[in-house]
Simulated scan of single mutants.
Amino acid sequence: MTNPMRGVFAVPTTPYTEDGAQNLDALSRRIDEVVAAGVTGILGLGATGEALALTPAERDAQIKTIVSAVDSRAHIVIGCMAYTPTEMSAQISQAADRGADAVMVTPPFYGGLEPDAVIAALQPVLAGAEVPVMVYNNPHSTGTDLIPDHLAALADTGRLWSVKETSEAATRIRELRDRLGQDIEIFVGADGIALEGFAQGASGWVAASAWLLPEHCQRLWAFADAGDWAGAVELWTRLGSALGLIEGNAAFISLIKQALGHRGHEQGPVRPPLPTADSESLTELMTAIAALEEER
């Protein structure tokens, strides 16, 4: 790949068959469709992909499928989320060996570590990484909020490629850009504040919603990247309604899967203990999507 690693990265769900196995054929088909929509990349094995519910063998099979399906047409980032630095590093090596362009790590979850302890844990992980690293700041799930000064401490490793930011602090994207400069990419990680993040100088968008609506998400980024803010705002007033229904639902992974199923892209259920979206939520989302596409 020669295009910069900035823009829209779609985050796949993990499709399952009726007997509960991974449906790698369905994953491959959807990747082909999403890449054809023009996204910059695919970020596999994130939380939306139920990565923590997969066995090591399933994880390896999925990485191979993603690399094969993308076929050098887009960038590939693989989530390497683990509790210990040793396991993170092992997952990074695996992803690099399989052909990933970059990886994503989070603070060790379940423990509410202080930021200094998180940075101490992540520094050797990044320093030893074979590929560039995105650090995912997700205080809602990890219990630790990494502010710009904390993340700047990782820049000296030479492997900090980007930050995926989902703290929901109103000015955090701008603060990260000011502190980290232009050499480190800053991605919006919360779908409901994509346009606000772009306006603050984000490098792009890591979007679960782009697995469902890749054309619309890509078009929103294209407007913003070109400085066409009138076009971006006009699209956002319509797209934002659908994305808000996804982002605000605790069963958003199931909701995305069910919506794709209604659109002819069967994804199967979620694995327990993840919740299943109710029929009312699905109906509301499909109505919003229909309205979005009618007005296109």
Rank of each mutant, 00 (worst) to 15 (best):
A129E: 06
A95G: 05
V270G: 11
P56I: 00
L176T: 09
V135P: 10
P85I: 02
M134H: 08
I253L: 03
E196L: 09
G268Y: 10
G201K: 04
Q94T: 11
L282M: 09
M1L: 12
L213H: 10
G7V: 06
E33G: 01
R172Y: 03
I31M: 00
E294L: 12
P214E: 09
V8H: 09
G112I: 00
V131I: 13
I173K: 05
P108L: 04
A194Y: 07
I256L: 06
T144C: 12
T84F: 03
P273L: 09
L45H: 05
V77P: 04
E58P: 06
Q200N: 01
P132K: 06
E87Q: 14
T283A: 15
P139G: 07
V135F: 10
P12H: 10
T157E: 07
S279C: 02
A224N: 12
P275Y: 01
T17S: 13
V11M: 14
G227A: 08
A210Y: 03
P272L: 13
E168I: 06
R73V: 01
V135K: 10
F223N: 12
N138T: 12
L274T: 01
D97M: 12
V135M: 10
I253T: 10
F9R: 04
P275R: 03
D101E: 04
M286T: 02
I186C: 02
R219W: 04
F109L: 11
G231L: 08
G158I: 07
T55C: 04
N23L: 05
P132A: 02
G189S: 07
K257V: 07
L285W: 02
L282K: 02
M88V: 03
H75P: 12
R238K: 13
N138D: 15
A61P: 00
T55P: 11
V35M: 08
L243M: 14
A129K: 10
W205G: 07
D278E: 14
S279H: 14
D97Q: 15
E87Y: 02
V8N: 08
I31C: 01
M81A: 14
E294F: 09
A117H: 13
A90T: 11
D32I: 02
Y16Q: 08
G197W: 05
I63W: 05
L151Y: 01
A242P: 14
N3K: 15
E50L: 02
G128V: 01
V206D: 04
D191P: 00
L285V: 04
E114A: 13
R172M: 15
C217K: 03
W236N: 14
L154E: 08
A90Q: 15
R159G: 04
G240V: 06
T287W: 09
R271I: 04
A232Y: 04
L213R: 12
E247Q: 13
V135I: 11
L43F: 15
A288R: 01
D25P: 00
R6P: 12
L213W: 08
D149H: 13
V131K: 08
E185D: 14
R98I: 11
G231P: 01
P139E: 12
L27I: 05
L24K: 11
R6Y: 10
L255E: 02
I186K: 05
F223K: 03
W205N: 06
I184L: 03
E295Y: 05
F109Y: 14
A290Q: 14
V133N: 09
A61T: 02
A190F: 11
L27W: 09
E280F: 13
D97G: 14
A277M: 01
P148F: 05
E87C: 01
E266C: 03
L176N: 10
P124A: 08
